[in-house]
């Protein structure tokens, strides 16, 4: 038996930590385990992936998991994100655990050959921890579904949360949150089947094209990469208070503040990542925040 789990989250949500909690829990429960994050120059909010394998025999695999038995999708906005593509390669009969307010049928990535469990982990995290850090909750959901016993799970959870330097108070809040998720779910019987995946290799001649330079002719194209779905909280301007002093314009690291046709400051929600620096800097406290609807 080997189980391959692929976590998809956004920077800051705890995908890497979730993969480690699951790895430590499985290892503590007597399995061989391996966990591995992929990240580049990511920032908070960017799509990230992490992987855990566990097995009752030696693990003879490594690196990116193309054919997971389980995918854990930590952010609803990633379900249909073509770059994250969280359902890609999920084995027939596999399991998807999705953090969403939507019903399973709407968050299955178009796959009707897999089991989908949906949970609103963001709400729970905000209520229990005061911020949308989902590592404990998503790891609990995967561990329980995969049949890892409670003691091993809590052991792995506490070890990993302490490893990242959380205080005892925050650790126990996470344990409470994770325990509630764990107790709500039941182990899922998984009989997964790998999808046929023929790699179409291209010859070198097909790769060799153009002048091979790294030049970017379309300069300033970052606005065309809409990063608005990285937001967890959304800044909202109270125009009754706002005097258009432009301080938010100066501080916004994403150049997502602009002056509209009416001469008033406006937020470009396609590109605002919800860092809330504008809110912190506004001298008149004219910028409020609302929870983002992740759909």
């Amino acid at each position: 038996m080997i189980l391959r789990v692929r976590f998809h989250g956004r920077g800051g949500q705890g995908a890497k930590t979730a993969s480690r909690i699951l790895g430590s829990a499985a290892f503590g429960g007597g399995y061989n385990a391996q966990d591995f994050p992929i990240y580049g120059a990511e920032r908070r909010g960017a799509p990230v992936a992490a992987f855990t394998r566990f097995s009752d025999s030696e693990i003879t695999e490594r690196g990116f998991i193309f054919s997971p038995d389980v995918v854990a999708v930590m952010d609803d906005s990633l379900v249909a994100d073509p770059l994250a593509n969280p359902f890609a390669g999920l084995r027939k009969g596999g399991l998807a655990i999705v953090n969403t307010t939507r019903p399973a049928a709407e968050a299955n990535g178009g796959r009707d050959d897999v089991t989908v469990i949906t949970l609103d982990l963001t709400k729970r995290a905000l209520e229990t921890l005061g911020k949308a850090v989902l590592s404990a909750g998503i790891a609990a959901a995967v561990a329980r579904s995969a049949g890892i016993d409670a003691e091993a799970f809590v052991g792995g959870l506490v070890d990993e949360l302490k490893e990242v330097g959380l205080s005892d108070d925050v650790v126990s809040k996470n344990v409470a949150l994770a325990g509630a998720v764990y107790d709500e779910l039941k182990p899922v019987e998984l009989r997964t089947e790998e999808l046929p995946a023929k790699a179409e290799l291209v010859p070198l001649a097909a790769v060799v094209s153009g002048d091979g330079s790294e030049d970017i002719v379309n300069v300033g194209n970052s606005a065309s990469r809409h990063t608005g779905n990285w937001r967890v909280t959304e800044p909202v301007i109270d125009y009754q208070k706002c005097t258009d002093c432009m301080i938010c314009y100066a501080y916004c690291p994403e150049s997502a503040m602009s002056v509209g046709a009416d001469g008033r400051i406006a937020i470009d929600y396609d590109n605002c990542k919800g860092c809330m620096i504008c809110q912190a800097e506004c001298p008149l406290r004219a910028i409020g925040s609302i929870m983002e609807d992740r759909r």
Partner: peptide, 10 residues
Amino acid sequence: GFYLSFTREK
């Protein structure tokens, strides 16, 4: 890098 440096295994 990554495939060993950041990979935890036994």
